[in-house]
């Protein structure tokens, strides 16, 4: 039911028709998710999926939800946020205004986390650019409505991340979901951006991109690292996921490690 040729043809079709480039994504994770898509869309094989991509205009937006990994949580790896708060924010505070890029923001949990921590650090003049390749994720992120159970779990991570208030101060609860205050998103610009195909994003002071690069093969990782390097101001910061590293990249020498455990790097000043 799953042939490698059909897999390559589908990925190629998606690229030429929609310019979504999955050619350098790790194959086994994509394959697993396509197997789930076969079940969900009642298809026998990938050829049928490809036919649908070619002939049904409404199909691709549904398929893309399967092709990207959207798992995320608020204050995931609290140590990362704690380190940002303690080691990075005091420095960022000295800038008159800040630009932060959350690359691969998925359904927005990390955006809310950042917005809360910036607020508590007394940083008011900032813009967060939150990007993802899946427009449906961005729509959900804009609503800032999350499952109560998920937010309840995030509450302890919020304290571990050094939260100074109560997470409940930031949302309204209703039935089994909660809505975060829209104020938290007033400095956030959501936009559709692909790390695989799109260009530099602008002069950023901090880029946070976590658990995105693990799905990319080496050449694509390298592209993204260059993109980040070019998008950061001198002395700008880069935060990666707990299992991602600059260590094997070509931009390694341009950055200094600020927190090894929490994967926080700073672009070094080079005369």
């Amino acid at each position: 039911m799953f042939s490698n040729d059909d897999f390559e043809l589908l990925i190629q079709e998606i690229y030429s028709r929609y310019q979504y480039d999955f050619r350098l994504y790790s194959k086994s994770s994509l394959r697993r998710r396509l197997e789930q898509a076969l079940i969900k869309f009642h298809c026998q094989n990938l050829k049928e999926i490809r036919m649908k991509v070619q002939t049904e205009k409404e199909f691709f937006p549904q398929l893309i939800a399967y092709l990207t990994v959207n798992t995320t949580e608020m204050f995931r790896d609290p140590g990362y946020f704690k380190s940002l708060r303690e080691n990075v924010f005091p420095y960022l505070k000295t800038f008159p205004s800040l630009k932060i890029w959350i690359a691969g923001c998925s359904t927005g949990e990390e955006v809310i986390s950042f917005s809360i921590l910036l607020h508590e650090a007394g940083i008011k003049r900032f813009i967060i650019y939150a990007t993802d390749i899946n427009p449906m994720n961005l729509e959900r992120a804009k609503k800032a409505i999350y499952d109560t159970e998920q937010v309840r779990k995030a509450s302890s991570s919020y304290y571990e991340a050094g939260g100074t208030g109560s997470l409940a101060d930031y949302y309204q609860a209703a039935y089994d979901s909660v809505q975060f205050n829209q104020d938290l998103l007033s400095n956030v610009v959501f936009s559709d951006h692909s790390l695989a195909t799109d260009a530099v994003f602008s002069e950023m002071h901090l880029i946070s991109c976590r658990n995105v690069l693990i799905y990319f093969e080496k050449p694509l990782q390298e592209r993204v690292f260059k993109l980040f390097d070019e998008s950061l101001v001198r002395d700008g910061f880069l935060g990666l996921g707990s299992k991602e590293t600059l260590q094997f990249s070509s931009i390694k020498n341009k950055f200094e490690v600020r927190d090894r455990e929490n994967k926080i790097y700073q672009k070094a000043w080079t005369p």
């Binding site: 790790s26 998710r33 693990i214 799905y215 093969e217």
Partner: peptide, 11 residues
């Protein structure tokens, strides 16, 4: 992976 590398995922 089929290219004989290891990959991690937070699926």
């Amino acid at each position: 992976e089929s290219n004989e590398t290891l990959s991690l995922s937070s699926e």
